[in-house]
């Protein structure tokens, strides 16, 4: 998936209902209430946090390009796609951002240092500058290598075989896999910068970055099946056990102990609106979420009915038709599965 295809895919889902900067927050993985809720409302799970370090100026450039190519039309408030964009095909993607949450970077950092070490040691070079200089990763990789008897040439061969076989299975293009390999370093072959990789494929740096994430997500799906034990180990701590943000998890615990919304806000010294965001997040993730203390069954039905009939998830539009509901109640109702 190319970067502008990613934007169009997200924009299609939220067309005329969200602002032009909302896809940016989603791609960056912003953990705000709005972004997290939208993932549930609009089914944007694959795209969350796929590029945590995306810079606004680059995003803006691509958006400008969409206007220039007649895919977006001027609208002061919201994203407004043209028919050209709306009828375009959304390519299938291997992205699974909601699951990996940007942690593919952890996997890649470990992999980079392991490959670099094997590359040098197997060619009898014992001293080199590590390509990853975070202490945490270095210690992890050291422990990993010690377990695998890494000075033995057979260890390198075994690792390489599992890497090759598992990546082969990943359902992405050969180009995807090449781009990922270009990010790895070894003796005499340093990793390439995004600019260099982009130039070698006639793509943009953003495109090759997205390709890399897509490859990693696809590959990690294969590795998770545990048929490649030498790589499965690299997944340690990559997948978060809970789908919730950490802060929402804390709110969940207090709620389970019987605290009310305003009490939780007080205890945690957070704004009520923040805690409300957490409840919306809980509702989104937990099919058994008990909303009765926030929302009557009738009100819930009323909100859902309006949303369905008007084909909208814009809070303002719903509020007009169901004025007795608070914005929080509307958000909650829309999040409930």
């Amino acid at each position: 998936m190319l970067f502008d295809e990613l934007l169009i895919a997200i924009m299609k889902a939220v067309n005329r209902e969200r602002t032009i900067s909302s896809p940016f927050h989603l791609i960056k993985g912003k953990k705000s209430g709005q972004t997290i809720q939208d993932i549930g409302y609009y089914g944007l799970y694959p795209y969350f946090a796929v590029m945590p370090r995306l810079e606004k100026r680059f995003y803006d450039q691509v958006v400008e390009g969409l206007f220039a190519r007649g895919l977006l039309q001027k609208n002061e408030d919201v994203i407004d796609l043209t028919d050209l964009a709306l009828t375009s095909q959304t390519p299938k993607t291997q992205l699974d951002g909601w699951k990996y949450r940007g942690n593919e970077q952890l996997f890649l950092n470990r992999l980079s240092l392991i490959v670099q070490t094997f590359s040098h040691i197997s060619q009898k070079v014992n001293v080199f500058d590590p390509v990853v200089n975070t202490e945490e990763i270095q210690l992890w990789v050291k422990a990993y290598l010690r377990k695998s008897n890494f000075r033995d040439r057979a260890a390198t061969a075994a690792f390489k075989t599992q890497l090759m076989d598992s990546l082969e299975e990943a359902p992405v293009t050969e180009r995807h896999k090449m781009i990922l390999m270009q990010r790895l370093s070894g003796l005499g072959s340093s990793g390439l910068t995004w600019e260099q990789i982009a130039a070698s494929h006639g793509m943009t740096p953003l495109d090759v970055q997205l390709f890399t994430v897509e490859t990693l997500h696809a590959w990690m799906q294969i590795i998770e099946q545990n048929r490649y034990p030498l790589l499965s180990m690299l997944m340690e701590g990559v997948i978060q056990q809970s789908a919730l943000t950490e802060s929402a998890q804390r709110t969940e615990k207090l709620f389970a102990r019987g605290f009310a919304l305003h009490q939780i806000a007080e205890l945690r010294q957070l704004k009520t609106s923040t805690i409300e965001d957490h409840f919306v997040e809980l509702a989104m993730n937990d099919p058994y979420f008990d909303y009765s203390s926030f929302l009557s069954e009738e009100l819930y039905q009323a909100i859902v009915a309006v949303s369905r009939k008007q084909q909208t998830k814009r809070l303002r539009d719903i509020k007009e038709k169901v004025p007795e509901a608070s914005y929080f109640q509307i958000r909650l109702a829309l999040a409930i599965r």
Partner: peptide
Amino acid sequence: VVPASWKDRLDALLPS
């Protein structure tokens, strides 16, 4: 010589 495929690149990184 620039590796032509991802497998070539991997071979360059980890020669057999």
